[in-house]
């Protein structure tokens, strides 16, 4: 772009997206240092690992949110897909290891199914993504509440199978197991987006839908698959969350909608599609969770956290979320 030529580039050779991802990581490091100033124990390894583990839940949801935001979509159905997944896992397994594998398959399958339904609504029926996924969130909320009788069903008090709880609480080589899982997801998502035809098609659709169609890309199938993936990651987050907490509860998915969107955007993705990288969303998720932890460490009241949270997002947006001025 000619406008950027005048400014001296920090780190030449890095794409604008790469630079934004780097900014998000820099902001995270700054926040950790700030936390260290506020409370000396903040940057100890155990605390850092805890923060990263909490960030994983946001990060998993943000993976799916990245998929759909890259094509200029959005997934507002995340909260109740996540919540439904958590409840489905505990009720279908009854807390028994023997039924854990089947319950996991069922739960991830449910996530995929709901996501695919979103994708069909958007790509085939032409419903705007905001409306389709908003409606789906209501549908899943109603189904979850109704089928569980408002969490009064006999199986609703079940715990997650010990196997799943072990996965959420275990550790390998001193690193919590959820972080290994997250690393695997990061590797998988990055590979999918950067090194496959599917990934290139995703960026192409996000950049120009019509041109992608004319170029012979299988636009509909790709869009449906992307929403399906978002359903799967939301369900996976629900599984990990219920494994971490032991029991499911109503409304446990609510915080993850706005946090997942914020993580993707802080990570430098364009909400209009075509630009972004999952590594950025990972930084965004860590950044957000660190911010919340710092504010908690400062004994900030809830209202203060909410206000500062909003202000920081605005500042980050103003720093690098601005659109080019139209000529």
């Amino acid at each position: 772009m000619s406008g950027g030529g005048k400014r001296r580039r920090v780190l030449p050779g890095l794409s604008p997206t790469g630079r934004r991802v780097l900014y998000a990581y820099a902001a995270t490091v700054l926040l950790f240092l700030l936390g260290g100033l506020v409370r000396p124990g903040f940057i100890q390894a155990t605390n850092v690992l805890t923060i990263l583990t909490v960030a994983m839940f946001v990060g998993l949801v943000a993976a799916g949110q990245s998929f759909v935001i890259l094509i200029g979509g959005i997934d507002l159905s995340v909260p109740w897909v996540l919540n439904a997944a958590a409840i489905l896992l505990t009720t279908s397994s009854g807390g028994e290891n023997a039924r854990a594998a089947a319950a996991l398959a069922l739960t991830l399958g449910m996530g995929a199914l709901v996501g695919v339904a979103n994708g069909i609504g958007v790509a085939v029926l032409g419903v705007p993504a905001v409306v389709m996924t908003l409606a789906m969130n209501g549908i899943m909320e109603g189904l979850t509440l109704g089928l569980s009788g408002g969490m009064t069903c006999s199986a609703c008090a079940s715990y997650a199978p010990p196997l799943v709880q072990g996965l959420a609480h275990g550790s390998l080589l001193g690193v919590p197991a959820p972080l290994w899982l997250w690393l695997a997801v990061i590797g998988l998502v990055s590979f999918l987006l950067q090194a496959t035809v599917f990934g290139r098609a995703t960026y192409a659709i996000g950049t120009n839908l019509r041109a992608s169609e004319l170029a012979g890309l299988r636009v509909r199938a790709t869009v449906i698959a992307l929403y399906g993936l978002s359903g799967v990651t939301a369900a996976l987050a629900g599984i990990m969350l219920v494994g971490f907490g032991g029991q499911a509860s109503l409304g446990m998915g609510e915080p993850y909608l706005f946090q997942s969107i914020a993580a993707v955007v802080i990570g430098g993705a364009s909400i209009l599609g075509g630009r972004g990288h999952y590594l950025g969303a990972v930084a965004g998720a860590i950044c957000l969770v660190t911010l919340i932890s710092v504010l908690l460490a400062m004994n900030m009241a809830e209202y203060g956290r909410s206000i500062i949270y909003g202000v920081i997002i605005l500042v980050l947006l103003l720093l690098y979320g601005r659109e080019a001025r139209e000529s």
Partner: peptide, 13 residues
């Protein structure tokens, strides 16, 4: 800035 992001942040504020 994109309206959806601005109002997401100001909603929290």
């Amino acid at each position: 800035l994109q309206p959806i992001l601005v109002t997401l942040a100001t909603l929290a504020i």
